[in-house]
Design a protein around this nucleic acid. Structure first.
Lengths: 121, 121
DNA sequence: GGATAGTACTATATAAAGTGTAGTACCGCA
DNA sequence: TGCGGTACTACACTTTATATAGTACTATCC
Protein backbone atom coordinates (compact mmCIF):
# COMPACT_ATOMS: atom_id res chain seq x y z
CA UNK A 1 0.00 0.00 0.00
CA UNK A 2 1.12 3.47 -0.72
CA UNK A 3 1.37 5.45 2.45
CA UNK A 4 3.35 8.26 0.90
CA UNK A 5 2.00 11.44 2.45
CA UNK A 6 1.56 14.58 0.44
CA UNK A 7 4.74 16.57 0.99
CA UNK A 8 3.24 20.00 0.48
CA UNK A 9 0.33 19.38 2.80
CA UNK A 10 2.57 17.77 5.38
CA UNK A 11 5.04 20.60 5.46
CA UNK A 12 2.29 23.18 5.40
CA UNK A 13 1.28 22.09 8.88
CA UNK A 14 4.60 23.35 10.17
CA UNK A 15 3.78 26.79 8.85
CA UNK A 16 0.62 27.06 10.90
CA UNK A 17 0.99 29.89 13.32
CA UNK A 18 4.47 30.76 12.12
CA UNK A 19 3.54 32.33 8.84
CA UNK A 20 2.16 35.31 10.74
CA UNK A 21 5.53 35.74 12.37
CA UNK A 22 7.43 35.35 9.12
CA UNK A 23 5.26 37.85 7.29
CA UNK A 24 5.52 40.37 10.10
CA UNK A 25 9.28 39.96 10.23
CA UNK A 26 9.51 40.71 6.52
CA UNK A 27 7.30 43.77 6.89
CA UNK A 28 9.26 44.97 9.91
CA UNK A 29 12.19 45.51 7.57
CA UNK A 30 10.18 47.64 5.23
CA UNK A 31 6.71 48.04 3.79
CA UNK A 32 5.89 45.62 1.02
CA UNK A 33 3.00 44.42 -1.11
CA UNK A 34 1.68 40.87 -1.14
CA UNK A 35 3.35 39.58 -4.25
CA UNK A 36 6.64 40.91 -2.99
CA UNK A 37 6.24 39.36 0.45
CA UNK A 38 5.75 36.01 -1.28
CA UNK A 39 8.99 36.43 -3.20
CA UNK A 40 10.90 37.49 -0.12
CA UNK A 41 9.66 34.57 1.96
CA UNK A 42 10.59 32.17 -0.83
CA UNK A 43 14.03 33.65 -1.22
CA UNK A 44 14.49 33.17 2.52
CA UNK A 45 13.89 29.44 2.21
CA UNK A 46 10.12 29.11 2.38
CA UNK A 47 10.25 27.87 -1.19
CA UNK A 48 6.81 26.37 -1.36
CA UNK A 49 4.70 28.88 0.46
CA UNK A 50 1.50 29.42 -1.50
CA UNK A 51 0.42 32.85 -2.66
CA UNK A 52 -3.04 32.36 -1.22
CA UNK A 53 -1.53 31.71 2.19
CA UNK A 54 0.38 34.98 2.19
CA UNK A 55 -2.49 37.07 0.87
CA UNK A 56 -4.77 35.47 3.44
CA UNK A 57 -2.32 36.12 6.24
CA UNK A 58 -1.93 39.75 5.20
CA UNK A 59 -5.67 40.28 5.19
CA UNK A 60 -5.98 38.61 8.58
CA UNK A 61 -3.20 40.65 10.16
CA UNK A 62 -4.68 43.79 8.66
CA UNK A 63 -8.13 42.96 10.00
CA UNK A 64 -6.69 42.37 13.46
CA UNK A 65 -4.98 45.74 13.37
CA UNK A 66 -1.39 44.61 13.17
CA UNK A 67 -0.93 46.01 9.69
CA UNK A 68 -1.91 49.18 7.90
CA UNK A 69 -2.44 49.31 4.17
CA UNK A 70 -2.25 51.64 1.21
CA UNK A 71 -2.55 51.17 -2.53
CA UNK A 72 0.12 52.29 -4.95
CA UNK A 73 -0.53 52.23 -8.69
CA UNK A 74 2.14 50.50 -10.72
CA UNK A 75 3.20 51.17 -14.25
CA UNK A 76 4.42 47.63 -14.81
CA UNK A 77 1.19 45.89 -13.91
CA UNK A 78 -1.85 46.11 -11.68
CA UNK A 79 -1.95 48.23 -8.53
CA UNK A 80 0.03 47.16 -5.50
CA UNK A 81 -1.43 46.91 -2.04
CA UNK A 82 1.31 47.81 0.36
CA UNK A 83 1.25 46.78 4.00
CA UNK A 84 3.13 48.31 6.90
CA UNK A 85 3.40 47.55 10.59
CA UNK A 86 1.28 49.35 13.15
CA UNK A 87 2.44 49.99 16.70
CA UNK A 88 0.32 47.10 17.94
CA UNK A 89 1.75 44.95 15.20
CA UNK A 90 5.29 45.64 16.34
CA UNK A 91 4.41 44.75 19.91
CA UNK A 92 2.80 41.58 18.75
CA UNK A 93 5.78 40.69 16.61
CA UNK A 94 8.11 40.93 19.60
CA UNK A 95 5.78 38.77 21.64
CA UNK A 96 5.44 36.24 18.87
CA UNK A 97 9.19 36.08 18.45
CA UNK A 98 9.61 35.21 22.11
CA UNK A 99 6.92 32.60 21.88
CA UNK A 100 8.57 31.07 18.84
CA UNK A 101 11.97 30.89 20.52
CA UNK A 102 10.45 29.27 23.61
CA UNK A 103 8.51 26.85 21.50
CA UNK A 104 11.38 25.79 19.32
CA UNK A 105 13.60 25.29 22.36
CA UNK A 106 11.00 22.99 23.86
CA UNK A 107 10.72 20.98 20.68
CA UNK A 108 14.48 20.83 20.26
CA UNK A 109 14.79 19.55 23.81
CA UNK A 110 12.17 16.88 23.25
CA UNK A 111 13.69 15.51 20.08
CA UNK A 112 17.13 15.48 21.66
CA UNK A 113 15.92 13.67 24.76
CA UNK A 114 15.87 10.40 22.95
CA UNK A 115 19.55 10.61 22.04
CA UNK A 116 20.83 11.32 25.49
CA UNK A 117 18.18 10.71 28.08
CA UNK A 118 19.33 13.73 30.04
CA UNK A 119 17.66 16.95 28.96
CA UNK A 120 20.08 19.78 29.44
CA UNK A 121 17.71 22.54 28.33
CA UNK B 1 -17.86 38.85 19.35
CA UNK B 2 -14.71 39.01 21.37
CA UNK B 3 -11.67 40.10 19.43
CA UNK B 4 -9.25 38.95 22.06
CA UNK B 5 -7.46 35.99 20.54
CA UNK B 6 -7.66 32.78 22.50
CA UNK B 7 -4.17 32.05 23.80
CA UNK B 8 -4.56 28.32 23.79
CA UNK B 9 -5.88 28.26 20.25
CA UNK B 10 -3.22 30.67 19.12
CA UNK B 11 -0.39 28.67 20.56
CA UNK B 12 -1.89 25.42 19.37
CA UNK B 13 -1.24 26.50 15.82
CA UNK B 14 2.47 26.19 16.47
CA UNK B 15 1.99 22.58 17.45
CA UNK B 16 0.50 21.67 14.09
CA UNK B 17 2.73 19.19 12.39
CA UNK B 18 5.21 19.12 15.27
CA UNK B 19 3.13 17.15 17.72
CA UNK B 20 3.70 14.06 15.60
CA UNK B 21 7.41 14.59 15.96
CA UNK B 22 7.22 15.21 19.70
CA UNK B 23 5.09 12.15 20.33
CA UNK B 24 7.36 9.95 18.24
CA UNK B 25 10.42 11.27 20.03
CA UNK B 26 8.89 10.36 23.37
CA UNK B 27 8.00 6.90 22.15
CA UNK B 28 11.46 6.40 20.67
CA UNK B 29 12.82 6.44 24.20
CA UNK B 30 10.47 3.72 25.33
CA UNK B 31 6.96 2.41 24.83
CA UNK B 32 4.26 4.38 26.60
CA UNK B 33 0.50 4.72 26.85
CA UNK B 34 -1.47 7.82 25.95
CA UNK B 35 -2.00 9.30 29.35
CA UNK B 36 1.68 8.87 30.06
CA UNK B 37 2.74 10.50 26.81
CA UNK B 38 0.65 13.51 27.78
CA UNK B 39 2.43 13.79 31.13
CA UNK B 40 5.84 13.41 29.54
CA UNK B 41 5.17 16.06 26.92
CA UNK B 42 3.94 18.43 29.60
CA UNK B 43 6.94 17.82 31.79
CA UNK B 44 9.13 18.61 28.79
CA UNK B 45 7.57 22.05 28.47
CA UNK B 46 4.47 21.47 26.38
CA UNK B 47 2.43 22.48 29.42
CA UNK B 48 -0.85 23.07 27.68
CA UNK B 49 -1.03 20.23 25.22
CA UNK B 50 -4.55 18.82 25.31
CA UNK B 51 -5.21 15.17 25.99
CA UNK B 52 -7.44 14.90 22.97
CA UNK B 53 -4.59 16.10 20.77
CA UNK B 54 -2.24 13.40 21.98
CA UNK B 55 -4.78 10.61 21.80
CA UNK B 56 -5.73 11.74 18.33
CA UNK B 57 -2.12 11.89 17.23
CA UNK B 58 -1.44 8.42 18.58
CA UNK B 59 -4.41 6.99 16.70
CA UNK B 60 -3.33 8.73 13.54
CA UNK B 61 0.27 7.55 13.77
CA UNK B 62 -0.96 4.05 14.51
CA UNK B 63 -3.31 4.08 11.55
CA UNK B 64 -0.49 5.22 9.29
CA UNK B 65 1.70 2.36 10.47
CA UNK B 66 4.28 4.35 12.40
CA UNK B 67 3.20 2.87 15.73
CA UNK B 68 2.24 -0.56 16.98
CA UNK B 69 -0.07 -1.04 19.92
CA UNK B 70 -0.89 -3.44 22.71
CA UNK B 71 -3.17 -3.27 25.70
CA UNK B 72 -1.92 -3.86 29.22
CA UNK B 73 -4.39 -4.21 32.11
CA UNK B 74 -3.63 -1.99 35.07
CA UNK B 75 -4.39 -2.61 38.71
CA UNK B 76 -4.54 1.05 39.54
CA UNK B 77 -7.15 2.06 37.03
CA UNK B 78 -8.50 1.26 33.58
CA UNK B 79 -6.47 -0.62 30.98
CA UNK B 80 -3.54 1.07 29.31
CA UNK B 81 -3.05 1.18 25.57
CA UNK B 82 0.67 1.12 24.97
CA UNK B 83 2.25 2.32 21.75
CA UNK B 84 5.65 1.47 20.35
CA UNK B 85 7.61 2.50 17.28
CA UNK B 86 7.61 0.44 14.12
CA UNK B 87 10.55 0.30 11.72
CA UNK B 88 8.73 2.65 9.37
CA UNK B 89 7.99 4.90 12.30
CA UNK B 90 11.66 5.18 13.16
CA UNK B 91 12.55 6.05 9.61
CA UNK B 92 9.86 8.66 9.55
CA UNK B 93 11.01 10.13 12.84
CA UNK B 94 14.51 10.65 11.48
CA UNK B 95 13.12 12.29 8.38
CA UNK B 96 10.79 14.50 10.41
CA UNK B 97 13.62 15.57 12.66
CA UNK B 98 15.61 16.72 9.66
CA UNK B 99 12.64 18.58 8.28
CA UNK B 100 12.08 20.26 11.62
CA UNK B 101 15.68 21.41 11.88
CA UNK B 102 15.59 22.80 8.35
CA UNK B 103 12.32 24.52 8.99
CA UNK B 104 13.31 26.11 12.26
CA UNK B 105 16.56 27.34 10.73
CA UNK B 106 14.62 29.05 7.97
CA UNK B 107 12.27 30.70 10.44
CA UNK B 108 15.11 31.73 12.70
CA UNK B 109 16.85 33.31 9.73
CA UNK B 110 13.75 35.21 8.71
CA UNK B 111 13.07 36.69 12.12
CA UNK B 112 16.70 37.65 12.50
CA UNK B 113 16.82 39.33 9.11
CA UNK B 114 15.03 42.36 10.43
CA UNK B 115 17.66 42.99 13.08
CA UNK B 116 20.61 42.99 10.75
CA UNK B 117 19.42 43.41 7.19
CA UNK B 118 22.07 41.03 5.91
CA UNK B 119 20.76 37.50 5.44
CA UNK B 120 23.54 34.98 5.87
CA UNK B 121 21.77 31.80 4.68
C1' DG C 1 -3.61 42.37 -33.62
C1' DG C 2 -4.31 38.43 -30.73
C1' DA C 3 -2.17 35.04 -27.77
C1' DT C 4 0.69 34.38 -24.03
C1' DA C 5 3.39 35.15 -19.88
C1' DG C 6 4.30 37.74 -15.81
C1' DT C 7 2.48 40.66 -12.29
C1' DA C 8 -0.99 41.47 -8.57
C1' DC C 9 -4.96 40.64 -6.10
C1' DT C 10 -9.67 38.50 -4.60
C1' DA C 11 -12.87 34.86 -3.33
C1' DT C 12 -14.42 30.30 -2.31
C1' DA C 13 -14.07 25.55 -1.10
C1' DT C 14 -11.28 21.99 0.98
C1' DA C 15 -8.42 19.53 4.24
C1' DA C 16 -5.54 18.84 8.30
C1' DA C 17 -5.00 18.97 12.95
C1' DG C 18 -5.36 20.70 17.79
C1' DT C 19 -8.94 21.67 21.19
C1' DG C 20 -13.31 21.48 24.00
C1' DT C 21 -16.62 18.78 25.73
C1' DA C 22 -19.07 14.88 26.98
C1' DG C 23 -19.18 10.31 27.98
C1' DT C 24 -17.53 5.61 29.60
C1' DA C 25 -15.11 3.02 33.00
C1' DC C 26 -12.04 1.59 36.62
C1' DC C 27 -9.80 2.42 41.18
C1' DG C 28 -9.05 4.20 45.98
C1' DC C 29 -10.48 7.05 49.70
C1' DA C 30 -13.27 9.76 53.02
C1' DT D 1 -22.05 7.06 48.24
C1' DG D 2 -19.61 10.36 46.09
C1' DC D 3 -15.50 12.37 44.56
C1' DG D 4 -11.00 12.70 42.44
C1' DG D 5 -7.47 10.65 39.67
C1' DT D 6 -6.55 7.55 35.90
C1' DA D 7 -7.36 6.19 30.99
C1' DC D 8 -9.56 6.20 26.80
C1' DT D 9 -13.17 7.29 22.94
C1' DA D 10 -16.04 10.17 19.99
C1' DC D 11 -17.79 14.23 17.94
C1' DA D 12 -18.23 19.02 16.88
C1' DC D 13 -15.66 23.22 16.38
C1' DT D 14 -12.03 26.40 14.91
C1' DT D 15 -8.08 28.04 12.67
C1' DT D 16 -5.29 28.26 8.86
C1' DA D 17 -2.55 26.83 4.68
C1' DT D 18 -3.68 25.35 0.14
C1' DA D 19 -5.94 24.60 -4.44
C1' DT D 20 -8.45 26.65 -7.78
C1' DA D 21 -10.68 29.94 -10.45
C1' DG D 22 -11.31 34.43 -11.72
C1' DT D 23 -10.22 39.52 -12.65
C1' DA D 24 -7.14 42.82 -14.60
C1' DC D 25 -3.12 45.24 -16.19
C1' DT D 26 1.45 45.29 -18.90
C1' DA D 27 4.83 43.68 -22.12
C1' DT D 28 6.32 40.55 -25.60
C1' DC D 29 6.18 37.31 -29.38
C1' DC D 30 4.13 35.29 -33.58
Amino acid sequence: MNVIPNRAVERSQLLKGVLDLAVLAVLAEQDAYGYDVVRKLRSHGLNDVAEASVYGTLRRLFATGYLSSYVVPSEEGPHRKYYGMTAVGREWLVEQQKQWVDFRNVIDAIIKTKEEGAPGV
